[in-house]
Design a protein around this nucleic acid. Structure first.
Lengths: 199, 199
DNA sequence: ATAATGTGTGAACGTATGGTCACTTGTTTT
DNA sequence: AAAACAAGTGACCATACGTTCACACATTAT
């Protein structure tokens, strides 16, 4: 077929790995889903593990772009309501973007078997969001929107519950809207507690 | 051997499933770890899946005892410091009890492949701790230790970050003490924010 | 035009896996 | 003592899996 077969293999692998894990996925099914025969895969990857490694390379690169680069640091909101809006935009995006959802699932499944998955899981599930919001809260303190405090601690207290609800969406997509509503309720609770009454 | 072979199979299965997942575990290895030969397993379980189901039954029963029964509801602390102490006791226990650690790992790995694992994962990772702490916070409000607010929301805001740090211990046991210290720091931050200044 | 390269195929391979079965041995029941 | 049962064994089976390879057929390079 076309030259994009390699990418299609990766896309299908991500999908299958996120459902059945690495060991639970076999190359017959994977290639059959692309209208190919299993031996064809070996024209694009030298082994099943090579697919896995390429997939992780992709995840790491993508994570670097989304969370690591300075351009993608979210702007500091001008109001407490702005924080809620920004948060909900981010939650809605991360919960509905299929590729990101599948990435989180794969990391959850493989985090104890693969070192790089373990590292990425820590970032996705804990440090990523926190580091993203630390400068946001620092900025909001400078603007007098939020009581002065340790911005890293605030970011952690804010993002960990949000992250837990994002996970819940991955687990029960049929109740995603409910979890998203809880995220918004939590965000509003948070600004009520930490926000300056003047804002 | 003895009559406890069935339980030893379950214990070893939990250990192997928590490392390599259900599909990644094979009966040869499992029985060999017990000094048996694979066919012996079938004297105790009718299939590999039967082990999995028995293990889940056990997990569900144990969860019911630990989180579901009224006797195990934690007492309402008499001081803010008491909340920190109670929390750290719970964190230390749940992080160092090998069986509970392995249970969480298995649930993380299998949550997208097995319905019951999915349900249990939701409880272990989200609702369990929250429901445990909701009456605690309600009681602390009654005692005038904490500002009156929605106890369920407070419990969620309190337990989600703690839960995230427990996960981090599962992922990187070599940095467990650091994560536990962060849990304590968060707990103190929390009582500073939500506690009555008089307490 | 020809060679080289990239992409896909089908058959075959060695191995690992879950599962079965007839058999042995030790313990319990009768 | 005999029968019944529980627990463990080794040989065997069918299947599924990752991988290899000789081959076919385009497209591209020379």
């Amino acid at each position: 077929m076309a030259k994009d077969t390699k990418e299609r293999i990766l896309a299908t692998a991500l999908e299958m790995f996120s459902r059945n894990g690495y060991v639970g996925t076999n190359i017959r099914e994977l290639t059959a889903a692309l209208g190919l025969v299993k031996s064809s895969m070996y024209k694009h990857f030298e082994s099943k593990e090579a697919i896995w490694n390429a997939l992780l390379d992709e995840m790491i690169a993508y994570y670097g772009v989304r969370f690591g680069s300075a351009e993608n640091l979210p702007p500091v909101p001008d109001s407490l309501e702005g924080l809620v809006e920004m948060t909900m935009r981010l939650v809605n995006f991360t919960v509905h973007d299929e590729k990101i959802v599948m990435t989180r699932k794969v990391l959850a499944i493989e985090q104890f078997r693969d070192e790089r998955a373990n590292m990425l899981a820590s970032k996705h599930f804990l440090t990523g969001l926190t580091e993203m919001f630390t400068p946001v809260f620092a900025g909001m303190m400078d603007k007098g929107l939020i009581k002065r405090d340790d911005p890293g601690m605030l970011a952690f207290a804010y993002t960990a519950p949000i992250s837990a609800l994002i996970h819940q969406c991955d687990r029960e997509p049929e109740h995603a809207e409910e979890a998203i509503a809880r995220a918004e309720a939590f965000s509003r609770h948070f600004i009520k507690v930490y926000g300056m009454q003047s804002a």
